[in-house]
Computed example of a mutant assay.
Amino acid sequence: MSVLDLVPVRTDQSSGEAISASLSLARRADELGYHRYWVAEHHNMPAVAATNPPVLIGLIAAATQRIRVGSGGVMLPNHAPLVVAEQFGLLEAAFPGRIDLGIGRAPGTDPVTSYALRHGAGGVSDEAVTRFPEYVENVLAMMEPEGVGLTVAGRTHALKATPVARSVPTIWLLGSSDYSARLAAEKGMPYVFAHHFSGQGTAEALELYRSSFRPSPELAEPRTFLTVNAVVAESDEEAERQALPNLMMMLALRTGSPLGPQLLVEEAEKLEVPAAHAPLVEAMRSRWVVGGPASARAQLDELAATYGVDEVMVHPVAGAHVGTEPDRSPQREETLRLLAA
Rank of each mutant, 00 (worst) to 15 (best):
V9P: 00
D110G: 11
G291N: 08
E186F: 01
A233C: 11
F213E: 08
R66N: 15
A268C: 05
S14E: 04
A203S: 13
V39S: 07
A205R: 10
E144D: 08
A62Q: 13
S114Q: 12
S211F: 01
R287A: 13
R287N: 13
M142C: 03
D327R: 12
G122F: 13
E325G: 04
A181K: 07
S198N: 07
M143Y: 04
R297W: 07
A61H: 09
L59T: 08
A21I: 08
A161I: 04
S235V: 06
H315F: 15
F95H: 14
P77L: 06
M248V: 02
V83K: 14
L244E: 14
A29W: 08
L173N: 07
A340E: 06
H277L: 06
E325S: 15
E17I: 07
G16L: 07
F132G: 06
D301Y: 02
T109Q: 07
P81F: 02
P330Y: 12
P326C: 09
P316A: 14
V129F: 10
A233F: 06
S176T: 10
S24P: 01
L59N: 06
D310L: 04
V273E: 01
R166W: 04
E127N: 10
E134H: 07
L280Q: 04
D30Q: 13
F132Y: 15
G175K: 05
H42T: 08
T170I: 09
S22W: 01
V273P: 00
G73T: 02
S216K: 06
A80C: 10
L208A: 13
S257K: 14
T335E: 11
K160D: 03
M250K: 02
K160E: 03
L247P: 04
L91P: 06
E237N: 01
S167Y: 05
E282R: 14
A275C: 03
A340R: 15
P245V: 08
A305N: 10
Q200K: 04
E221R: 15
S329K: 12
M142H: 01
G33M: 08
P293T: 13
